[in-house]
Amino acid sequence: MTKVLVLYYSAFGHVERLAQAVATGAREAGAAVVVKRVPELVPEAVAHRKGYRLDQPAEVATVEELADYDAIVIGTPTRFGNMAAQMKNFLDQAGGLWARDALVGRLGSAFTSTGSQHGGQETTLVSIHTVLLHLGMVVAGLPYSFKGQLRMDEVTGGSPYGASTLADDGQGGDRQPSENELAGARFQGRYVATLARALAAARMTEAA
C-alpha cells in the first residue's frame, strides 16, 4: 500500500485543518496516511501568551523517517512569503537523506495558509518545491482539474502550486478554511496518493 506522510506546522490550527483534509483525500485514494508535525521553536511561555495551539494530537516527526514514505505533503503557514522557520529548520536537517539519495523519485507536494489574500501563498509553496527538488523528489501541485480554484464568487485560496487558505477575515479576525479550500486540499491528497502509487510501482519495476 502506498504510504503518504502529511507533514505540517501550524501555530493557530489553520494549516492543521488543511492537513487533515489532505490526509482524508489521500486515504480516499487508498493510501496509508500518517499525519505528523514538526517541532515548535517558539518558547512555551511565548506560545501560550500568543495563543498558539499547543495541544495538537499529531505526533512530532523525525527527519530520518521521511525516507519511509512514498509521498510527503508539506504544509506550513507563510512567513513573509516563505515557509515558517519551524518547517525550514526541520527540512534543513535532511542533509543526510540528501547525501544518500534517500528521497530521490519520491513524490512531494505542498500546501499553505496566509493572513491575507495576497500574503505570499504562491511564493511559499514554490519555496517548499525548491527544497523538494533539491532532495530529488517529483513535485505535484493542485491541477486545474480542481475547478474550485477558478471560483470568482467568493474569496478563496488555492493555486496550481498547492492548496491554501486565508486565515484572516480582513478585519483582524480569525477565518477558518472554507469548504472550497478544504475540498482543494482533499483533491490534492487524492491526486498525490494516485501519482505516488504509480511512481512506487515504477521504482519496483526498475529495481527488479
Rank of each mutant, 00 (worst) to 15 (best):
G172R: 09
G173R: 13
T165C: 15
E154R: 15
R175G: 01
T205F: 08
S159L: 01
Q188F: 06
T165F: 03
Y161I: 01
N180R: 12
G173E: 10
L199D: 01
G184W: 00
G170E: 13
E181W: 05
S178W: 04
N180K: 03
P177Y: 04
T165Y: 05
L195P: 01
G189N: 10
G158H: 03
R186A: 12
R203H: 15
T156F: 00
F187A: 06
D169M: 07
L150Y: 03
V155R: 11
A196Q: 08
A167T: 15
R175K: 15
R175Q: 15
D153E: 11
G172F: 10
R203Y: 11
D168Y: 10
T205V: 14
R197Y: 05
A193S: 08
F187N: 06
L166R: 09
A196Y: 10
N180W: 02
Y161W: 15
G162A: 06
R151M: 03
G172P: 11
M152P: 00
D153R: 03
R190Y: 02
P177I: 05
R151Q: 07
F187E: 05
S159Y: 01
A201L: 14
A183R: 08
S159A: 12
A163Y: 00
T165V: 12
A167F: 09
M152N: 09
L195E: 01
A202C: 06
V192E: 04
D169R: 08
P160T: 09
G189L: 11
E181M: 03
D174R: 13
L182N: 02
L199T: 03
G170I: 12
M152W: 03
T165W: 04
Y191L: 13
A193T: 11
L150R: 11
G157I: 05
T165R: 06
T205W: 09
S159G: 02
V155L: 13
R197Q: 14
G158I: 02
A167L: 08
L150H: 07
A163K: 00
M152E: 12
T165A: 12
R186P: 05
T194C: 03
G157C: 07
F187T: 08
A201Q: 15
G170Y: 12
V155P: 13
G184Y: 01
M204P: 00
R186L: 05
L166H: 12
S178D: 04
G189K: 11
G189T: 09
G157T: 08
A202W: 06
T205Q: 15
A196T: 10
R190L: 02
A200W: 00
E179L: 12
D169P: 09
M152I: 09
G170P: 12
G162T: 07
A193C: 10
E179M: 06
L166F: 13
D169V: 07
T156M: 04
G172H: 11
Q188E: 15
Y161D: 00
A193F: 10
T156P: 00
T194H: 05
L199H: 10
T156G: 09
T156S: 15
R197D: 14
E154N: 05
S178Q: 07
F187P: 03
E179V: 11
T194P: 03
E154W: 02
G162H: 08
E206P: 00
R175N: 03
D168M: 08
V155N: 09
G184F: 00
E181F: 06
L182R: 02
G157H: 08
S159H: 01
R197G: 13
A163V: 00
T205N: 14
D174L: 09
E206F: 13
T156L: 10
Y161E: 01
T194S: 14
R203D: 13
A198M: 13
